[in-house]
Design a protein around this nucleic acid. Sequence first.
DNA 1: CTTCTTGCAAAGAGTTTGCAAACAA
DNA 2: TTGTTTGCAAACTCTTTGCAAGAAG
Lengths: 138, 138
Amino acid sequence: MQSFSELTALLESKGIKPSLQRLLLLDYMYHCHEHPTVEKIYADLAAQGHALSKATVYNALTLFVQKGILRIVHLDNSEARYDILTNDHGHFVCECCGAIYDEPVDFDQLNLQFPEAGSIRQRDIFYRGVCKRCKDKG
Amino acid sequence: MQSFSELTALLESKGIKPSLQRLLLLDYMYHCHEHPTVEKIYADLAAQGHALSKATVYNALTLFVQKGILRIVHLDNSEARYDILTNDHGHFVCECCGAIYDEPVDFDQLNLQFPEAGSIRQRDIFYRGVCKRCKDKG
DNA sequence: CTTCTTGCAAAGAGTTTGCAAACAA
DNA sequence: TTGTTTGCAAACTCTTTGCAAGAAG
């Protein structure tokens, strides 16, 4: 997933009109692997000369989440983070440096039972602690 | 864990001065099994005639989290929810009615590997979807 | 007396909304 | 035209902070 024509096709397949702003955002998300916040997305695009308004960033990201292209990662109740929805993975969050590490998780193999669940749309796993890098520092 | 003297002992064992407000909050949390928001805690205590200020509720809950008595549940980036820290469990969140269901999870048995993790302090699992009750309704 | 806690109000951060202008079909 | 998208600013919600009054040791 690299070219604008591929991104355009993806958006259209989801029923989203491929405006320039949306293509820029989607392209950014496909190349960013650090679970960015809205603030970071906005600043990075602005630095590249693409000065979208923040409302447009919110609008587009929310739309992408609704259409199943992105997911929101709720690490804490401060800023939301966004994640391209590729294969299943869990998150390890370092409470020292704030880094977020992805790790593949086979949710089916975990075979978790939620008797109250009628249907399951999304599965998230968060482990929190101190990452090796921070631990080694002191 | 029922009586005020037991709650007092718990607070003191964690190095927290057992003020009346803190005891009321802790007592409330021990008897509330629905992952309440600050707003709900505040309203329920007020309805019982205990009009703590909202700042006090925030202060005390934050303190309890720091001391490992409660944990914050970040369902989404709106209101934080609080959970008495008892045994390990996962959460199933109904996106239709907002209900939160606990389910015991043996995290050790899952044996998830996070190679970047130096030490792990907390483990969370969130499944989201539609609960049976909502699904049956149509 | 000294320290910690409470409570009010104001400030702050993140997000959403209203509306007019720009764009696309 | 007709509907959609953008962008700015204002509004809104949840949370934190500053500070004075009160309680505890």
